[in-house]
Amino acid sequence: MNTANAQIANAKAKDSLLYLDGVSVSFDGFKALRGLSLVIEPGEMRAIIGPNGAGKTTMMDVITGKTKPDSGDVYFAGDTDLTRLDEAAIASLGIGRKFQKPTVFESHTVWDNIDLALAGDRKPFATLFHRTSKAEIARVEEILETIRLSDKRDWLAANLSHGQKQWLEIGMLLAQEPKLLLVDEPAAGMTDSETAETAILLKEIAKTKSVVVVEHDMTFVRDLGVKVTVLHEGSVLSEGSLDVVSADPKVIEVYLGR
């Protein structure tokens, strides 16, 4: 029966990059996600908005293997069941994640942060005897350029400003060469100019990869100019362009109108 279900889900998930259907998660009886369904097409960039506690971060936890859903399907690239894999395996499939609170390796240099995230063999004995190649050095340089941190390569990540840490973390995602990037509130705590730059950076990235961005900042979401999904109490409330969802009475009631 399970295989039959899986096949049905597969058929629907077939052409999508990320496919969530009826996903529910509860913490000690509190339902953080209730029957959440979401489909991301290959190459798509999607913005997700929703009030605090709507379940946005929990959704990312489910996709990246941190939290196992109580029920529902989560498929990547059509046929890979993400609910069966752990974080490391999911990351290796090509799903990168930026946390809500910037998390970088504070006692490593900016360079080493990117170097560690660089795609490559992740097994202990491979890294033990690993020698950095010219290609890898070039790749790190390139990413530092993209995230505008080339001049701070030798800095300890701990000494970066909040905004710079956010970028470093995005750089680490790029280094993984993921197919899909999940970005949780990239503009949180940034100045206006940093926020604008971040939008440019993400649009740049979205040219070659699929990106899901969670964000509270409306100007930022407008800058992105992509399809928007509104989450509320663990499920999708509305979906469409920013103008469409902003005009949706349900959305105005729970979110924008407050």
Binding site: D86, A88, F105, H108, L116, K123
Partner: peptide, 16 residues
């Protein structure tokens, strides 16, 4: 050292 600093981050970039 990455594990010491941020174990979760290390997992999410693919290290077991």
């Amino acid at each position: 050292v990455a594990v010491r600093d941020a174990e979760g981050r290390t997992r999410f970039i693919g290290y077991r």
